[in-house]
Simulated assay, not measured.
Amino acid sequence: EVAAVGPEHYAEMIALARKRFDLVIVDTQITEAMDVSGLIDHAVGPALSRGGYALGMVEFSTPGVENLLTSMTYLQRLGADPARMMTIANNISPDVRDYGKIPHLLGQHSRWKGVIHHDQRIDDDMVSRRIPHAVPPMRQVTSDVLETMTGMVEFIDPPPGSHDRPVLPWWKRWLSR
């Protein structure tokens, strides 16, 4: 509720979390070009200008890509570093193998991190409130994004067939630190 929880509350929570945790993820859901809540201007933008990372996700639609480009441009005007901005395409049909100019277009404003193809296992895990780490397209892109943000080798997936792979998934290894 915007009237009860303002952007200053989010900014305060982000600051408190940064003191306690190595990695703080703020899910803003869809960031529209015209944010009337003030969350982007007064909480997310300042956090990004102080060295935070942004990850934009898009499905392949003209309005979706346009909104993401507008949002990235706006965040950069607020001080976000384009080198610390990443983009992925999500929920793409497995039949789609040619992404056209989208990687190049988004890559001009961010680091293009790839595509997560639609996989029913991802939907099933999300509905069951499980992290879909075992689904290869999700694991590959998520590991790449987390390694980029943290620089931690724990997030680099070993090549397929590697025998030195830990038994636990990366997120359980990381949370148990």
Rank of each mutant, 00 (worst) to 15 (best):
R18N: 08
K19M: 12
R20E: 11
R20A: 12
D22P: 13
D22W: 13
V24D: 03
D27Q: 08
T28G: 11
T28Y: 03
A33H: 07
M34P: 02
D35V: 01
V36Q: 13
G38V: 05
L39R: 08
I40S: 03
H42C: 05
H42R: 15
A43D: 03
G45E: 01
P46G: 07
A47V: 00
L48W: 02
S49A: 15
R50H: 08
G51K: 08
G51D: 05
G51I: 07
G52I: 00
G52Y: 01
Y53K: 00
G56V: 03
G56H: 01
M57F: 10
V58I: 12
E59L: 12
F60S: 13
F60M: 15
F60W: 10
S61A: 07
S61E: 13
G64R: 00
V65L: 05
E66S: 04
N67H: 04
N67A: 02
L69A: 12
T70D: 09
S71Y: 02
T73L: 12
T73N: 14
Y74L: 12
L75M: 10
Q76E: 13
R77Y: 11
R77C: 08
L78H: 04
L78C: 06
G79F: 09
G79N: 14
A80H: 04
A80Y: 02
D81L: 06
D81R: 12
D81M: 08
P82Y: 06
P82E: 04
P82C: 05
A83V: 08
A83D: 10
